[in-house]
Design a protein around this nucleic acid. Structure first.
Length: 666
DNA sequence: CCGCCTCGAGTTCT
DNA sequence: CTCGAGGCGG
């Protein structure tokens, strides 16, 4: 699509101004910072490419949005600049190289601080007495928020030993995460606006007409720079020392170094740690330490060359819902899935987001074409948080026919879910086969989604036993399959025949029987034939097997179609028995162990097997009953839970030592 | 009957 | 990873 550049530039300017308005005037941005920066960069690039369309009115020529009219304007003695943003190591290295070039030296000292997500503020002291507090506004002129800022406990009203005359101390006014949660609880109880994040809450609190309300908000301040004033220091570190002497809080995170490699290492480490800090930090700020060097580097129209923000990718993103499709799972459940305009979020590009069910669509009020916010915070799976703009007109209605087989959809009366109840539905067959071949089940090498799709579409396979009747020539006819891949898949199928009974039971896809229950059943009955003869009473006698599970298992093995499948698999020569559990020792007898994080040299499944060989029970979740957690690197919420509950935490090395092995024997 | 502890099931991207 | 729900102890 080719658009005329003048028009595109005009559109971008309008869009950016609209978002400036949302951000600065309404304290309610719909774009994440990353998204905004992308728009901004696009405009800047276009303006550079077509200088004939340059304009002094363009948002690229101003620092921020317009100051709101409800507070008196204050002209900053020295303009408040913003910082250039970077999002990856390459951009930071490029910044460092540029500095090195201008300074004619690549060994200069830098200071790294946390970039706290709040509202920037300039405090004017005259002869050490706080006289004015101003918001940033457009950088040149801000708003007079003195009355509100005077209620912030962190900010000293009088400085001892401050320089004579005027001095502007700049910093960030912010709210701690726990204070946001408490505030939102109160807001909800009083039917007031819920703040989306700490920055919005801080901005909203400073914007109050009545300082008494601001006073109730536990706002905090930390100093990070200065405007005009005779600062008795020759470096940024010296300035920070002075600030502390005067009683200002400063960033609790600080690194002083000449090494850009060390900064990048710190950035990577800090990504995990920042979530445990009491405040929101969306990145780090890097500054050249020496004021003399800062002066050599100078400033551009918008930002100093001697500093750069090193930000983390946003965990939320704004995009548009292009379409909603309906997927059919292996059990026949029909799930609506939103196809969105691909958007970068938390380091990956999101193009699909599940909507779970139709209640969720109703709750969101979602229509195709709407602008939405989605999130991938902490979790892996994208979730649509809310609709920000109702641009769509097309309502999303449950399909009357199954999108895969076209037969009528069945609506469950009670649960409100929609199902395709025909076992011969291609989507269900694909789901069942894929599950059968999956890693935790029969673990068939070379059977991925694409292969299963083709095998089912070409009707080579409609049930599990068909897999073992595939010939070399069937496989050769598949897309991208030659001798090598065909033989690999045949080998994978052959290997799967020997899997223990527990895996086969899991692979069959019996309702309520997952990997764990399958293992319990296999260990108890030893052979498939014993299990098939079991009554519901026999089954319920087993620990962890109750009414629902026993009925499901019983029904499954009394379905004629299932019995026929099992006979086929028996003919083919599949293993129907469970090997005796091998016991290496009983050192972990009575213990319940949970593994988390990426261990070196072995997988979590292998580690769990190892623990069980030594008599332990293993579990996927941490509770008060957990004996200890083995945490490797990149451990997440389970480690946190263990710390909260005071559960003992071991390293993988300590675990191996405990069971008397220095290397995992597998 | 309630609450805790687990497991099962669905789901995304590289 | 999270949600929903089965199993079970109190």
């Amino acid at each position: 699509m080719s658009v005329n550049p003048a028009e595109e530039i005009a559109n971008l300017r309008k869009e950016i101004e609209y978002h400036n308005h949302l951000y600065y005037d309404l304290d309610n941005p719909v774009l994440s910072d990353t998204q905004y920066d992308e728009l901004y960069k696009k405009l800047k690039d276009l303006e550079a490419q077509y200088p004939q369309f340059a304009s002094a009115d363009s948002p690229t020529q101003k620092v921020g949005g317009m100051a709101s009219s409800s507070f008196a304007p204050v002209v900053h003695a020295t303009p408040m600049m913003s910082l250039d943003n970077s999002y990856n190591a390459d951009e930071v290295r490029a910044w460092h190289e540029r500095c090195a070039k201008i300074l004619s030296s690549d060994s200069f000292e830098m200071i790294l601080e946390a970039k706290i997500d709040g509202v920037s503020c300039s405090l004017t002291y005259i002869n050490g007495i706080l006289t004015t507090a101003a918001s940033r506004g457009d950088g040149k002129t801000g708003e007079d928020i003195t009355a509100n800022v005077l209620t912030v406990q962190d900010i000293p009203h009088r400085l001892t030993g401050a320089p004579e005359g005027l001095m502007e101390i700049r910093g960030e006014i912010y709210l701690d995460k726990k204070d946001l949660a408490a505030l939102n609880e109160k807001q909800a109880a009083n039917n007031q606006i819920i703040f989306a994040n700490t920055r919005n809450a801080a901005a909203g609190s400073l914007r109050q007409k009545d300082p008494a309300i601001t006073k109730q908000r536990p706002l905090k301040f930390f100093a990070h720079s200065f405007g005009s004033g005779a600062i008795a220091a020759d470096s940024f570190q010296g300035f920070i020392d002075l600030c502390q002497k005067w009683g200002f809080h400063v960033s609790p995170v600080r690194l002083r170094t000449g090494s850009i490699a060390e900064i990048i290492r710190f950035y990577n480490d800090f990504n995990d740690k920042r979530h445990d800090l009491p405040f929101d930090a969306d990145g780090l700020v890097i500054k050249v330490n020496s004021f003399a060097q800062q002066q050599i580097l100078g400033v551009t129209a918008k930002s100093p060359r001697w500093a750069i923000a090193f930000k983390y990718p946003a965990e939320q993103a704004t995009t548009t819902v292009n379409n909603v499709i309906f997927s059919v799972g292996r059990s026949g459940v029909i799930t609506p899935v939103a196809q969105v305009q691909p958007v970068a979020c938390a380091g990956v590009t999101i193009s699909n987001a599940t909507l779970h069910n139709f209640d969720e669509i109703k709750r969101l009020g979602l229509r195709v074409g709407d602008k939405i916010i989605l999130e991938r915070a902490g979790e892996v799976i994208p979730k649509i948080i809310k609709v920000v703009e109702h641009l769509g007109t097309q309502d999303i209605v449950p399909p009357a026919q199954c999108p895969s087989c076209g037969r009528p959809v069945y609506k469950a009366e009670e649960e409100g879910g929609y199902y395709c109840i025909h076992p011969s539905c291609p989507a269900q067959i694909k789901g069942r086969i894929l599950h059968y071949a999956s890693r935790g089940a029969m673990d068939i090498d070379g059977m991925g989604e694409a292969v299963v799709d083709e095998l089912v579409d070409r009707q080579f396979v409609t049930n599990f036993s068909d897999l073992y009747n595939l010939t070399f020539f069937h496989l050769l006819s598949l897309e991208n399959f030659k001798e090598k891949k065909s033989q690999n898949l045949l080998d994978g199928l052959e290997a799967s025949k020997k899997r223990p009974l527990s895996r086969l039971l899991f692979a069959l896809g019996i309702a309520f029987v997952g990997a764990k229950t399958a293992e319990v059943l296999a260990d108890h009955f030893h052979t498939l034939d014993n299990l098939m003869k079991a009554t519901t009473q026999d089954l319920q006698a087993i620990p962890d097997v109750g009414a629902a599970v026993s009925q499901s298992v019983y029904d499954f093995f009394h379905d004629p179609a299932v019995l026929q499948q099992i006979e086929q698999l028996r003919q083919i020569g599949l293993n129907f028995t469970q090997p005796q559990k091998q016991i290496s020792s009983r050192v972990l007898e009575g213990k319940t162990v949970v593994f988390t994080g990426e261990m070196e040299g072995f997988t979590r499944t292998q580690a769990e097997q190892l623990a069980r060989q030594h008599g332990a029970k293993t579990s996927g979740s941490v509770s008060a009953k957990t004996s200890f957690v083995v945490a490797a690197k990149a451990a997440g919420s389970k480690l946190k839970k263990a710390q909260e509950l005071g559960v003992q935490i071991l390293t993988p090395q300590e675990f191996l030592k405990l069971i008397g092995e220095d290397k995992p024997s597998l």
